[in-house]
Structure formats: structure tokens, C-alpha cells
Design a protein around this nucleic acid. Structure first.
Lengths: 234, 234
DNA sequence: GGCTCATGTTAAAGCCATTCACATGAGCTG
DNA sequence: CAGCTCATGTGAATGGCTTTAACATGAGCC
């Protein structure tokens, strides 16, 4: 009844790394069937253990989901931080990259994304989860602060927090409504990325930032666009 | 085994209006426990029928959910239409009211809202659902078209569809992230309504609309259909 | 070698979704 | 009014899921 752990990854009575295996299994299942379709039992089956085993590592199904959401926020923070790249080569460009990274994350990591935002687990489900979410948002806020500090002279400086919330909301709205591959999709005359970029540029212009191609400092390459929205809607 | 229908709303073997009763029951349950927590059996119990009865009216649980979402979009359309009020007293003010109505709907009708946007049912689940969603969005699009037509001279006119999508995304993002009473709430330095209004105003300013304090609310003297702020042939 | 406890297993209770055969009675037809 | 029919409900059965409890295993430690 109890096989030894052989060279091919078989296991004995004890799994050895069940917690991690369950998280991975759940991630795959959520990606397949959404956070609602995912079942605790299925994750256990995928990991090759009995249905009761997961309870040694997670209080219940929601606890697993919260763990995934937390891990998702951690990944999210990394991705956003990389996109921001400390504001290089210039603040506006880097800021735009954050928006793109937001959408890219929603698209390439739908399992994380839905666990984070659509699973129905409250943000304050655990302090760690809340903290992870806060850190991820912190990247956007920090970028907004840098951006706010660059407000052109003669323009009243907007609160960085508000800017961060606006951009977050816009990115989140675009991602939620149009961002995922196949579910809940609505037809769009443009890509979500372009939609978000245009919106963000218009928004920044509304704050007094010069956003057209001829303006910003060290941006060497320029897009052939003439304004926030390209040439013509499809 | 079969009571007569007495004066107080008791019922006999046949319910008489079960479909409606199930929709109402489900609506209440979703409001209580979210779209995930709601169960078909619970709805049946609330309506006072056996667990199998609902299947005479809905193909399955998702079908009920889709019906609720559809009804939600219909309500939503009404609410948005009322808020828009055909652009009175001026286009920008009415446009702002749409944003407020969006948030108000998310807050006062959380059951509808989550069935519409967070239940995981695909938009094209049924043609009726898709059409209802399209009509609701149509209100925003129509408003955006009126607004786009008012672009001040000398400014390139933005595509109305794009404007509509931006505003929808922003409103949806704010509502999803911060809009509901108690679940998934994050702390905010301002109300969701103020956040959205500020964002929308900044956005409109970025499009070249004069939106600051010195600008509008000035529909009192001029005829509502003339001048830069009111001319919009239907 | 022997202990102990974290980690798994089996078994069981309770809930839910879904289906099938059957019951009821509302409304039509004559 | 008698009788028929079919939409609408009921009960019971199947199979899955969640969660708990009692028991088994063996890894790490003396």
C-alpha cells in the first residue's frame, strides 16, 4: 500500500510537498474552469491524494483560494515593479508600461487574476493577503507620486493617491471588461492595450501633462501616432 | 396533500408564478451571499417548492443566473437612461450623472451587479442577455456621441465609441474595486463617487473639454439647444 | 530500536445539482 | 359537467463536493 519514492517522482504515503502541489493544481484548474468551477476535491485528485488530505494544509477551500490570491498579488507586484523599472527611460513611458503590464497579467495569468479579483474572497480575508494587495498597489502609487512630482509648472498638482486610484480603476475596468482571452468578452474596435493606453494618455493630458510624441524628453523612439488614439478606429 | 389557495397567498399543488418567485428568491440570496454562495436548492426552498421544481423553468442553475443578469442589464439600462435624461440640463452634467448612476446601481443592486459582472456566466450565454447588455452600454455610447459632437473647435474629435469605452471602464473599475458596501472593500481617501467624478472630469479635460469650475452649470440663461454646450441634433 | 507527530487515508454525514418516473389539477373540448 | 391533456410539481435516486473524525504511516529524533 505504500510505495517508495522512486526515481520517477512516485511517492510514498507522504507526498512530501503537498501544499505546493495543491497550489499548482488549483492554479491550473482555475485557469481552466474559473474560480467558481474549481473544486477542492479536484485539486486533491490532481495532486494524487485523497480528498481529505488538503485539510492538513488549508483550513478550507476559501483558504486555498486566498493563498492563491496572495501569491497572485506577490507576482503582480513583481510584474508591475519590473514594468515600472524605476521610471526609466522616462516617467510617462514607464507609467504606460505599468498599464500594459496590468493587462498582460490579467491575460497571461487569468487564474491568479480571477483569484485576486473575482473569487469573492474578501481582501481582508487574511492580513497577509491584504498586505500583498497593498504592496502591489503601492507600485502604482509610487509611480503616480513620481509622475505627480513632474506636474508642469503652472498646473495645480494632483494628489498622487488619486491619480493612482484613477489609473488602477481604469486598468482594472479595461482588464475586467475586455481583457481576458475568451470569457465574458465583448467586441472592441481596438485592443484592450490600445484602449487603456489612449485612456491613460487622455487622462494625463487632462492633468496638464504633455503627452504627445514630440514632448517627452529622452524617449528616443517615437510611435507614428499623432495623438492618444491612433489614426482611425477600425 | 394539496391545500387550496387561501386568501393569504398559500398555494396548491401548482405555484402559479414560480418562475418569478424563483427569480426574486435568487435575487435575495445573491444579495446575501454573493453569486457563488447562492444555490439552486436554496432558491427553491425559499420559494416553497421542491428542489426539482425549478427545472421546469430554468435549464439549470446558470440559466437562472443568466436570467437575473439579463434582468439586471434591463434595469441598468433604465437607470442609466434616466440619469442621462437626454443630456439635460447640459451634456457634461448629464454625462457625470451617468457615472454616478453606475456607482449607485452597483451599490444599491449588488445582486444584479454581481450577477451581471461577477457570476462567471459568459455574456453570450444567451442572445437576450447579450442584447440587454448591449442596450445598456448603448446608453453610455449615445451619451458619448453627444459629448463627442460637442468637442470644442480646434480639437481633434475623439471617437465616441472610444470615449464610451473609457468611461465605462473607469466607472466599472471604480465600482468593482471600491463600490460595494462591505465586500472586497479597500480603504479610500474619498468616496467612490468623488473618485469617479474627478477622474471623468480630468479625462474630459484631456479631450479638450473645458470642465473646470468656471465652465459649466451655465445652462440657465441660454436655450438648452444652442451654443457650444447644448447643440446636439439628436 | 522505539517514540511521536505531521501528514495521509478511509468512512461517513450532509448538502447540492440533476434526472426520471409519477402525481396533480387548470384549461380546453365536447 | 365528464374527460383529456399537458404544463407544472413531487419524491426518490445518483453522483459529486465539503468537511469532520478515527485511524494508519513513516520521517525525524532520542
Amino acid at each position: 500500500m505504500s510505495w517508495r519514492k522512486d526515481s520517477r517522482g512516485e511517492r510514498g504515503y507522504h507526498h512530501g510537498n503537498l501544499k505546493e502541489a495543491l497550489l499548482q493544481a488549483a492554479l491550473g484548474l482555475i485557469a481552466e474552469k474559473g474560480p467558481a468551477g474549481f473544486t477542492f476535491a479536484d485539486a486533491a485528485r490532481t495532486a494524487g491524494v485523497s480528498a481529505a488530505a488538503p485539510y492538513r494544509h488549508f483550513r478550507d477551500r476559501d483558504d486555498l483560494l486566498a493563498s492563491i490570491a496572495q501569491r497572485g498579488f506577490e507576482q503582480f507586484e513583481l510584474v508591475l515593479t519590473a514594468a515600472w523599472d524605476d521610471g526609466r527611460p522616462n516617467t510617462v513611458t514607464a507609467f504606460e508600461r505599468i498599464g500594459k503590464a496590468y493587462l498582460a497579467f490579467a491575460r497571461t495569468e487569468p487564474a491568479f487574476y480571477s483569484a485576486m479579483f473575482e473569487s469573492g474572497i474578501p481582501v481582508d480575508s487574511s492580513p497577509e493577503l491584504a498586505a500583498a494587495g497593498e504592496r502591489a498597489f503601492g507600485v502604482i502609487r509610487a509611480a503616480a507620486e513620481r509622475l505627480a512630482a513632474l506636474t508642469p509648472p503652472g498646473v495645480t498638482r494632483p494628489p498622487a493617491m488619486m491619480m493612482a486610484l484613477h489609473i488602477w480603476s481604469l486598468a482594472h475596468g479595461v482588464a475586467s471588461l475586455f481583457g481576458r482571452g475568451d470569457a465574458a468578452r465583448r467586441k472592441l474596435p481596438m485592443s484592450p492595450e490600445d484602449l487603456l493606453e489612449a485612456g491613460a494618455l487622455i487622462y494625463l493630458r487632462g492633468l496638464g501633462f504633455p503627452t504627445d510624441q514630440n514632448v517627452h524628453k529622452s524617449d528616443t523612439t517615437t510611435a507614428p501616432k499623432s495623438g492618444p488614439w491612433g489614426t482611425a478606429p477600425k
